[in-house]
């Protein structure tokens, strides 16, 4: 068990998300940076989909009620275990009673905002409709279907002794950088209504920066930049949408659907951020700029393959390393 001693807004239990509920109106939820979550679980030799705590606001403080192995992936939050420094993206041992503190992320060699506290054998909340992710809109899943509060006691899985402390992973944000004109970027496939926008709107989409406004959260990122205008007003019938879809409401300022987005909508879609780049957006700070890079289907497949390769390679090297250390 771990006890939350101090938590800011909107820390939630997340795994890689809930599938199969879209026809009931149930969105996917899941980690905003699924790569950091999967990597943390690989470090601890958990299943990649094991539930962890997503921390978007700091400081954050938690006490380990029994000894375990943990890793903090995502943003580097200058972690401390009692007084000792905690390396990011690193498997650490914690003894019963020790307190982990995370402070506001330092923007150093990789700019990130969300941390993931991964624990050997995971946060053991009940799976609801096939996932442990918190469904905030439906108030189910995760821990009581809500963000964490001070004093919450989260059950953790019984450690099977596979996790080995004392090594780490290099964050994939360093190995797989993506920028346009020095601005962090994500790749986008044009969507159904792309051709319904003016040429200058299409140009603006690809060639200008988009600021992530303060009205951005797990539901969606509201962007500000040049106004995007359709050739004529569009009213669409409601249809299924997915995280990554860039909708343009009548105001002309785009909204990117994120992990808690509703699974359907009707605003015109100018493009969709490819699934393989959503983790980059999940770590983009409010107030920062993002660029969109137009990509082809084959390039999008290549990006997915890059992610799969990084995860497989990490898993292989971690198992090799832990095998040498006498782990099972």
């Amino acid at each position: 068990m771990i006890k939350i001693l101090s938590v800011g807004a909107l820390a939630t239990v997340q795994d890689l998300g809930r599938t199969g509920g879209l026809s009931l109106g149930v969105g996917t939820s899941g980690a905003m940076d699924p790569l950091a979550l999967a990597a943390g679980n690989i470090l601890l030799r958990n299943q990649e989909n094991t539930a962890a705590v997503e921390v978007p606001v700091f400081p954050f403080k938690v006490r380990f009620e029994r000894s375990t192995v943990f890793a903090v992936t995502g943003a580097d939050c200058a972690g401390r275990l009692d007084e000792a420094p905690v390396l990011p993206w690193w498997a650490h041992r914690a003894e019963a009673g020790q307190v982990l503190s995370l402070s506001h992320p330092k923007q150093t060699t990789w700019r990130a905002t969300r941390a993931y506290l991964c624990i050997a054998d995971g946060v053991d909340v009940p799976a609801v409709l096939g996932s442990r992710s918190t469904q905030l809109r439906g108030s189910f899943g995760g821990y009581e279907g809500r963000p964490l509060r001070d004093g919450d006691e989260l059950p953790t899985g019984r450690s099977n002794g596979r996790a080995v402390p004392g090594f780490g992973l290099v964050p994939p944000g360093l190995a797989l950088p993506l920028e346009a004109d020095g601005v962090p970027a994500v790749r986008v496939l044009p969507a159904a209504e792309y051709d319904c926008f003016t040429n200058s709107s299409q140009d603006a989409l690809w060639s200008t920066g988009w600021k992530i406004t303060a009205q951005s959260d797990r539901y969606g990122y509201r962007l500000s930049g040049r106004e995007l205008n359709p050739l004529r007003p569009l009213e669409l019938r409601s249809h299924g949408i997915v995280p990554g879809v860039i909708q343009v409401p009548h105001g002309g300022q785009p909204i990117i659907q994120m992990r808690d987005a509703q699974p359907s909508g009707g605003y015109p879609k100018i493009g969709t951020v490819i699934e393989a780049d959503l983790w980059r957006l999940g770590q983009a700070p409010i107030g920062s700029n993002v660029r969109f890079i137009r990509c082809s289907w084959d390039e999008a497949l290549g990006a997915s393959a890059d992610i799969r390769r990084w995860l497989a390679n990490s898993r292989r090297l971690v198992e090799l390393h832990c095998g040498e250390r006498g782990g099972r």
């Binding site: 509920g21 879209l22 026809s23 009931l24 109106g25 149930v26 969105g27 469904q135 809109r137 439906g138 189910f140 007003p233 009213e235 409601s238 299924g240 409401p249 009548h250 105001g251 509703q262 699974p263 359907s264 909508g265 009707g266 605003y267």
Partner: peptide
């Protein structure tokens, strides 16, 4: 159809004369 959020129902059959565009924001 169901969509939008858990349990939400999209309904067919509304009188087109009361159709009103979605909100700007």
């Amino acid at each position: 159809a169901l969509g939008s959020h858990p349990g939400y129902c999209y309904l067919g059959g509304m009188d087109a004369r009361i159709a009103t565009p979605r909100r700007k924001v």
